[in-house]
Amino acid sequence: MAKARRSNDWGFPRWRGYGSSREATTVRLCDRHGCEEPGECPAPKAPNSPERWMFCQKHAAEYNRKWDYFEGLDKAEKEARASAERSENAGYAEAQHYGWSGSGDGSRSADEMRALEVLELDADADFTAIKKAWRDKAKTVHPDVKPGDKEAAAEFQKLQLAYEVLKAAEDRREWRG
Rank of each mutant, 00 (worst) to 15 (best):
A84I: 05
A82P: 01
P47F: 09
F55A: 06
A133F: 02
G91V: 11
G91E: 13
A115Q: 01
E40P: 02
R65W: 03
P38D: 09
E117K: 10
W53I: 09
Q96R: 13
E77C: 02
N64Y: 14
A110Q: 11
T128L: 08
R65V: 10
F55S: 05
K45E: 12
D111N: 14
G91M: 04
A125V: 07
G39Q: 05
A123Y: 07
A90I: 13
A76K: 14
F70Q: 06
A115L: 02
Y92S: 07
A46N: 11
E77T: 07
Y98S: 01
A76N: 10
K78I: 12
N89E: 13
E37N: 15
G104N: 11
G102Y: 07
G99P: 00
E51T: 01
R52D: 07
N64E: 13
E36I: 10
C56V: 03
E88W: 04
K58W: 00
E77G: 10
P44W: 01
P47H: 08
E94K: 14
A82S: 12
G91S: 11
G104D: 10
D111E: 15
Y98R: 09
M113H: 03
S103D: 10
L121S: 00
E85V: 11
P44M: 04
K132F: 07
R108L: 15
H97N: 09
K66N: 15
Y63G: 03
A133R: 12
Y98K: 08
A123I: 04
A90Q: 14
H59T: 08
D126I: 02
C41L: 00
K45M: 15
A115W: 00
Q57P: 02
R81H: 10
A110T: 11
N64I: 05
E112M: 03
A82F: 10
W100R: 11
R65D: 13
E36V: 12
